[in-house]
Design a protein around this nucleic acid. Sequence first.
RNA 1: GGAGGGGUGGCAGAGUGGCUGAAUGCACCGGUCUUGAAAACCGACGUAGGUUUGUAGCUUACCCAGGGUUCGAAUCCCUGCCCCUCCGCCA
Length: 425
Amino acid sequence: MLDPKLFRGNLDELAAKLLKKKYVLDKVLIQRLEEQRKALQIETETLQNERNTTSKSIGKAKAAGEDIEPLKKQVGELGDKLNASKAVLIEVQDELQDILYSVPNLPDATVPEGNDEDANVEVLRWGTPATFDFEAKDHVELAEQGNHMDFQCAAKITGSRFSVMRGSMAGLHRALTQYMLNTHIGQHGYQEVYVPYIVNADSLFGTGQLPKFADDLFKLEGEQNYYLIPTAEVPITNLVRDEILDADTLPLKFTSHTPCFRSEAGSYGKDTKGMIRQHQFEKVELVQIVAASESEETLEQLTGHAEAILQALELPYRKVVLCGGDLSFASTKTYDLEVWLPGQNAYREISSCSNFLDFQARRLQARRRNPETNKPELVHTVNGSGLAVGRTLVAVIENYQQADGSVKVPAVLQPYMGNISEINF
RNA sequence: GGAGGGGUGGCAGAGUGGCUGAAUGCACCGGUCUUGAAAACCGACGUAGGUUUGUAGCUUACCCAGGGUUCGAAUCCCUGCCCCUCCGCCA
């Protein structure tokens, strides 16, 4: 959430910034609610104060053996007025809070204008898409050889948008995961964490998935408000919820490999074939908790950590900066990494790296103690996929395919696969 | 699943329904002392919100969470969550 003080400042300026994100702020409503809130809050707190002091005087009067009945009557009347005032105040505050929770983060000044992904701006292209002297197959065609990917079976076991992988395909998938984790731990200085795959509503609120995006989540039946994680971002970032961190512990750099579960509501008909869009997929996530002054630089670094995986796998990719209209709710700036998929003859998203500034931290009450002022201040959170494993698998087999339908194993993965150099289906 | 015990400030740990936003100790911060450090001593020391030009002042809330009793709740009652101990079961 944004700093509530912004709602009391220059609303025109705020609305203009949000418009870049295609969010229309109801300035008139907010201004009216704010005026009411201010008046009601002052009234309520004044009454509260009177009641408290009068109540205390009852105690003293009683101790002095005086008649306390008149005082009790007076407090009773005060209480009635207080309750009435408080009830209206809570209504107004709730209304303001609903707005506050649903207003997206402000886009960074460097974010390009635009409505949708077509307006995203390419900032870098790495590698050259290979040209094949045969007709390139897509990953489904390749991996269904020998049933290495089996969507029929997955549909039987569960339903659509799930996959079964067998043999060397499952092995390649696991090798990718291990390689990514080891690289981030060993080369990039992240600490591996193992986290729950089921989280409560508070955690999802903290990172911004709730209350607005409940439809994208799998909710568990039962007494508790439990959900399957849509990304490791949720449990990892919530590690610091309600914490005041010592300044010298920052930056915190976490990586974790988890499954992710997404309902994909609203994506009917999109990527229905293959492993691109699944209800369940694996991801190696990168999360950094940093001081406010660091997050801009951290986003660049963290994106570089994700890029390093693509480069080591020698997969051609491009890096785009998302335009205002394509930027997610909580993000102030996002780089998408798009890998080249010969089977689709297109670049497809494989990683999304975002700076959230204090937007998540404020919801999480995640703070650090500023060593200069000795006061708590909100941290900044930055995260990204490093990378989405399923999609990386798709990219590897499509980019490393050979004329006979076999797939070469990227050099860096070979140690993780018993040093084989090729997968024959 | 059964039976008990408990959740108080960064930590430890007091707290008869009013004078307790909370004793005390430790840690942290500032200072005195010291060549420097330690020790000792002195002082400051929770978080969030409102008001205000204000890091000044005033003010509200918060002792796991949510309800309730009461003029008044950290303290009494109810519900939930979490933790601990013992028994049972179990990967």
